[in-house]
């Protein structure tokens, strides 16, 4: 049976792991490679590295970090943050990333999704969608949540799947960093409208939040950062808890 995945996310800024609250107020959370190894040992199913500095000077440093991670860890990992061209993707894949995650660039230039899928296969393209509730409608935001768009979350999700995305990483900005649980309704609605896996993100604060996600939605995976970084809930403890609750977990 296919297992539900638990995915720690490492936000990277200038080579360090950081974590913010509601997309702001960054706190230092440690060395990415050391954290990555710790998560693998604890039973993480995949890892996501999102580079939130993503300046041009930093790009080369990110590729170096990706190479280091690829040498050290034996589970799949996704790299995202500031990817805007197929050349950016080439560099990260060549450095050892299994998948890339694109966000703002996909909104600006949707054909990029298809280009990556054609070159590396759909399984390589994760489209990250940051959403926020605006006048009772979930809308898509870009540029780390700073820029509003006219795209409705449900419609954009459908479109990126048609363009060749292999997975969607759906982050609710309303929930992110609050520790009050995932955005269950919109996650389930989008997941049910698609035939590709949806990774839910934003809001995990306790073990039960993951249970509710997998019990009440069809999401394929859960992504979280702070609760793992600060050891609030170690990955191994969470997985043991979910197994005991009869969720299909590795």
């Amino acid at each position: 049976m296919l297992k539900k995945r638990i995915i720690p996310c490492l936000d990277i800024k200038d080579g360090r792991t950081v974590k913010g609250i509601n997309f702001g107020n960054l706190r230092d959370a440690g060395d990415p490679v050391a954290l990555a190894k710790k998560y693998v040992a604890e039973g993480a199913d995949e890892l996501v590295f999102l580079d939130i500095s993503a300046t041009i000077e930093y790009r080369k440093t990110l590729a170096d970090l990706v190479r280091k991670i690829a040498r050290e860890i034996n589970i799949p990992f996704t790299v995202g943050g500031g990817i805007s061209t197929l050349e950016d993707v080439d560099l990260l894949i060549k450095s050892g990333a299994d998948k890339v995650s694109i966000n703002s660039a996909a909104v600006r230039y949707p054909e990029l999704i298809t280009q990556i899928a054609n070159k590396y296969g759909s399984q390589c393209v994760v489209v990250a969608i940051d959403i926020k509730l605006q006048n009772e409608e979930w809308m898509v935001f870009t540029h780390g949540g700073n820029t509003a768009t006219s795209l409705k979350a449900t419609e954009w999700a459908l479109r990126v799947a048609q363009l060749g995305a292999g997975e969607i990483l759906l982050t609710s900005m309303n929930n992110d960093g609050t520790g009050e649980g995932f955005a269950l309704d919109i996650t389930n609605q989008i997941s049910n409208s698609l035939n590709i896996p949806v990774i839910a993100s934003g809001g995990a604060g306790k073990e039960e939040d993951f249970f509710l996600l997998f019990e009440q939605t069809t999401a394929s995976a859960a992504l979280a950062a702070s609760i793992f970084h600060y050891n609030t809930i170690p990955v191994s403890t969470l997985k043991k808890y979910l197994k005991a609750k009869n969720i299909s977990i590795r």
């Binding site: 049976m1 296919l2 297992k3 995945r5 199913d45 759909s122 399984q123 292999g166 997975e167 698609l194 035939n195 590709i196 896996p197 394929s220 995976a221 590795r250």
Partner: peptide, 13 residues
């Protein structure tokens, strides 16, 4: 066949 999510992505036994 598209009777479940494709690609088959993740851990299986």
């Amino acid at each position: 066949p598209p009777l479940d999510r494709v690609p088959h992505t993740g851990w299986n036994n």
